[in-house]
Amino acid sequence: MGDDLNGPEYQVPEELRSHITITTLDRIYNWGRRSSVWPMMFGLACCAIEMICVAASRYDFSRFGMEVMRPSPRQSDLMIVSGTVTKKMIPQIVRLYNQMPEPKYVLAMGACASGGGPFKEGYNVVSGVDKFIPVDVYVPGCPPTPQALLNGLIKLQEKIDTQSIRTVRWYKREASEPIPIPILGPDLIDPRDIPILDAKRASVVKPDVPENS
């Protein structure tokens, strides 16, 4: 048991440190979760190659308990959005996110996943996956080097450490709402925007509607 498990507010005699640890429930709960974050085996673009390198022998994220990459969203805790998110792909990404069980985390790897990246101006590119799903950690870089990704994963572990069992979303009585899946229309349609779109159409006064600008 590492020192990180022992609560700083409790004094354990030196000779007993390897046998006894006094901690809070939050701490041991988070310690368990942060040491077994299973990422989804899910690659999008260039960054996915660096993600594979992180899984491979040189950077080896099994040192953080993350080596169990799950091909199924049902078994994974972390979605590493590694690469450019396109309009054609975002319905699937949202669906995968909805299928992941709580607690779930999203790490946006690289410029493209964070905010569109160099391809932001493209007609088929979503400018940041956080337009659709909540993101916990952003890792800048194009692509981030494996060590930068590891840094992001450590940041994620730090975030997990700050959560408390009393306030976390997934123990609330009401179930969390799934995110509505975007539709591929003449362009990408976010179902959450449909009321706005309808309202706009109802109140068309100007001939040059802003949707087309």
Partner: peptide
């Protein structure tokens, strides 16, 4: 968002 719709489009 990075979207635009044809003027006659209704969702």
């Amino acid at each position: 968002k990075n979207v635009q719709y044809p003027p006659e489009f209704t969702p």
